[in-house]
Design a binder for these strands. Structure first.
Lengths: 128, 128
DNA sequence: CAGCATCCACCAAGATACTG
DNA sequence: CAGTATCTTGGTGGATGCTG
């Protein structure tokens, strides 16, 4: 997280240049992580399949998300110039390695979110 | 990520009830992860120390973030009723375990973000 | 010192309509 | 089918001023 151990305003971690920050900006995105997980499961999907699979996403957000992930080298976009056009998306090796990282998050969540829920109830009860 | 393998609109992962979604909402937060990392390094910090350490955070956001993390059981808030008041924040065991998960993210970022950067340059060059 | 209250600006995200 | 274009909005986050 780019923590400065020296004195001064310390963290520059939130700066756009911090790798961790940029990673969180990516996977913290509501749709990006869903796209990655979907492609991780299916291996390769068409635009319309992704659209159907990820409930609630608008075309705009799906396209925007896919472009971003493509730009980051996390997935590839393949156009087959048939009629009508066919476009397939697939994770790159880089994208697959990130999928592994996301799974770690998932495991923490499944193991500990119940505890978080209990803490919330407790907190809300005491502050009501 | 609560993926439905059955047919239908498939993902309900983005729903508020999905543990992974909620975890990403937490650590995807710009300031929350910084607070956790800061407390992970220092072990225990006063409000003013956190404020000085995390450059650019407003009082509003810092307070809001701390309340959220306290509510989630990730840190404790200890008030010492001296004059003037003294308030200390410290990670709970739960918060410490999350710190470990965040470190995984950091490792991925440090190992792969350079590759992401290259992909971006390439992409931007080809679309210019 | 450690906050709460208020106001405001901004922009990401959704809805809608159109197209190669 | 797989998008693009445009408009609108809500809620996040910052600035400011005040208090136990």
């Amino acid at each position: 997280m780019d923590v400065k151990t020296a004195d001064g305003p310390a963290f520059d971690a939130f700066a756009a240049s911090c790798p961790s920050r940029r990673l969180l900006d990516t996977i913290g995105n509501k749709w990006a992580s869903l796209v990655i997980v979907a492609l991780g499961l299916e291996g390769r999907m068409r635009y319309s399949e992704l659209s159907a699979r990820i409930a609630g996403v608008s075309q705009k957000m799906l396209t925007q998300t896919l472009r971003g992930l493509e730009r980051d080298g996390l997935l590839t976009r393949t156009v087959t110039p048939s009629v009508p056009v066919r476009v397939d998306y697939e994770l790159t090796p880089l994208g697959l390695s990130l999928l592994g990282t996301i799974r770690h998050l998932k495991e923490w969540a499944e193991a500990h979110m119940a505890e978080v829920d209990r803490a919330r109830e407790e907190y809300d009860r005491n502050s009501a």
